[in-house]
Computed example of a mutant assay.
Amino acid sequence: MERSLTLAVTALLTAPLAFLLFAWLTASMAGKGGSDIVIGYAYSSALLGMVAAVAWVFLLYFVANRFLSAPFLKYIQLVDAALLAGWLLAWWMHLDRQPQKFTYAQSRPILEVELRASASVLLGKSIEDACYIQFTGGENFNLPHPERVRKEEDAIILPWETTLFTVKEWEVRVFLHDQLVTFVLNLPKEPAHTMIWSEWSNPTSTDDELLPQSLMLRYRFRVVPYGSQ
């Protein structure tokens, strides 16, 4: 009984590997074909992967049950434990990367951003024409505020906000004259309450070495009752 149960568990724990292998082999055959070909191979890869997984379960169980000697049973059980731990870790990592759905009773979550640009990088344009702000970390509703643009010393500041529905990661992209500038925000995965403004931060990544001195961003998370600004 113990032998049969151990081999059945082994077959089930290794079945996803068979699915992934055959699905990957089938999908890789799509190459650089047209969209219809790619879609066809995608469906085929999933179907063949499932067939391979089921066949693998029965084949492995049959072969191991017939030819594997009893002294190797404890080693198989160790492999089963390692596989189970690995799949649980992979599942936890998968869940951790899923978008966080924001729901606050009678309130809406808002990410507020202020973009600070030196006049020299605007090339004579207004900041709202030269810069486009985009939250790329999840589903949201962007709302720039060109009517609130202000000047501080030699810099122009553009306020912007977005209502958040889901958040996968806290990342804001700014397109300055079509050049991509990325800011990664230091916020918790699911803020529990309204937070204060951050310090002005430099871009996380940019192709222009001079931009970190000319383009900065600060931000805050707010929970706002419906009907309030």
Score class of each variant (00 low, 15 high):
Val9Pro: 01
Ser205Thr: 15
Phe67Val: 09
Gln179Val: 14
Arg220Leu: 03
Asp36Met: 14
Asp129Arg: 14
Ser228Pro: 01
Val224Arg: 07
Ile196Gln: 11
Ala55Glu: 11
Glu199Arg: 13
Leu59Phe: 13
Lys168Ala: 15
Ile76Asn: 04
Asp80Ala: 08
Gln213Asn: 12
Leu143Ile: 10
Ser118Trp: 00
Tyr75Asn: 06
Arg173Phe: 03
Arg66Asp: 03
Leu122Gln: 03
Ser214Cys: 06
Ala18Lys: 03
His94Val: 07
Ala90Val: 11
Thr26Leu: 08
Thr204Ile: 08
His177Gly: 13
Leu68Glu: 10
Ile156Tyr: 11
Ala18Arg: 04
Leu59Ile: 04
Val223Asp: 09
Glu147Tyr: 02
Ser107Lys: 07
Pro159Lys: 10
Ser205Trp: 14
Ala85Asn: 03
Leu215Gln: 04
Asn186Ser: 14
Met216Cys: 00
Phe72Glu: 07
Glu190His: 05
Asn202Thr: 12
Leu210Asn: 14
Leu185Cys: 02
Arg66Ile: 00
Val63Phe: 09
Thr182Lys: 10
Tyr75Gln: 04
Ile110Tyr: 09
Trp92Thr: 14
Ser205Gln: 13
Glu147Asn: 08
Arg97Asp: 15
Pro109Ile: 08
Val224Ser: 02
Val54Glu: 02
Arg222Asp: 05
Pro212Arg: 04
Ala8Tyr: 04
Phe19Trp: 15
Ala90Asp: 01
Gln213Lys: 10
Ser45Pro: 15
Asp207Glu: 08
Glu147Arg: 00
Trp170His: 00
Gln98Arg: 11
Leu211Lys: 03
Leu122Lys: 02
Phe22Asp: 07
Ala55Ile: 04
Leu164Ile: 09
Leu122Ile: 08
